[in-house]
Design a protein around this nucleic acid. Structure first.
Lengths: 185, 185
DNA sequence: TTGGTTTTGTCGCTTATACAACACATTGAA
DNA sequence: TTCAATGTGTTGTATAAGCGACAAAACCAA
């Protein structure tokens, strides 16, 4: 909560770069976007890009995280209880996110995106589990988070496969009873 | 045309400040807007404001100029012929500009705005007259520009007074025949 | 393959912006 | 009036961002 206040210039420039990247992603495929493009479009110096990001893959990952986190913050996952409502909203957020990406970054980087989504989920689930169990570190919870993240992510893939037949909410809620009753304390 | 490329940071920050000011102008009256407000809203340091502008009046004038110039650039006054078409488009630009300001900066600063509009007009007319007459400097043309600028500005005030009765285009074109035939070579 | 073009990271130096502190005005309520 | 709060300009110092240049890598057509 009490971070030492990051320099506003950093926030501005990061946002500018990320926004520009997302805008470009709407026009070209990821593989055709260069750092030089981004710098030109954002009207920043290319060196400034490297001040903030390791390379373009680093940027991609951070943008994905950001968008996911924003989506998830809109829902109320901060209640930090791993209940039906939270899982549903997370699932909806993911499917929304994937829909919003469906015209961007198509070929060749689904892998990167998928990996990133799952990793983010793992982090989120782990945090929630830790809070729920009031511990500091726990290998068991870590593994649980891995399983949950893969599971939820896989569900979103499956939902996409049979899309239009059922809403994300309905879809996930078909499974929830079977999941939660096993994990409840 | 070949300026030595102003630093992109300057362009960015100036635009940010101006945009923020215009946004705030939509919410408060000019007299209630402080430099501190602008800096806070734009998330820049207050000292940065003073790096670009003398004070808030300086900002106001520059914003007005900017908006006017943009309005005028949209029309085709760069054909630098002082003909019927150009005068009409300038007049329309001014009335549009005043309409767009009607909910902002009301009480107490019509004077500043008016003065600024007229000064801009004077500059524009002088430039056009110089080009038209292909001279470098001319006291007579300068005075002519003064007269034209006051005249056109006054016309816009008069039009506003009896608004809704007639379009700006029609209004100014009632006078144009009487003006141009005297100034034509 | 070759060789030309583009992109990538990185570096040293300059400049714009952040921040905190300051003295001074202006305001507004007691 | 007086006092407290708020706004104004300004300054010194730290840091982010700009710029040009560079070698190396990646790309691509001949």
């Amino acid at each position: 909560m009490n971070q030492p206040k990051t320099d506003p210039r950093i926030l501005r420039t990061r946002k500018l770069i990320m926004d520009t990247f997302m805008e470009l992603s709407g026009k070209k495929e990821f593989k055709d976007i260069t750092v030089t493009d981004i710098a030109a479009e954002a009207m920043i110096n290319r060196a400034t890009f490297y001040y903030h990001f390791e390379d373009i893959y680093d940027l991609l990952e951070k943008v994905l995280s950001e968008v996911l986190v924003v989506n998830l913050d809109c829902s109320n996952y901060q209640d930090n209880e791993l209940n039906e409502e939270v899982i549903t909203s997370i699932f909806v957020a993911i499917t929304n996110f994937q829909k919003s990406l469906s015209n961007r970054c198509h070929r060749g980087y689904e892998d990167t995106i998928a990996r990133n989504i799952r990793e983010q989920l793992e982090i989120i689930f782990y945090r929630m589990l830790l809070k729920q169990h009031k511990t500091e570190e726990d290998e068991g919870l870590k593994i649980t988070a891995v399983i949950l993240s893969w599971g939820i992510y896989g569900a979103s893939v499956e939902w996409k496969r049979q899309s239009n037949k059922i809403t994300p909410e309905e879809f996930i809620q078909l499974a929830i009873p079977h999941l939660l009753h096993k994990h409840d304390i």
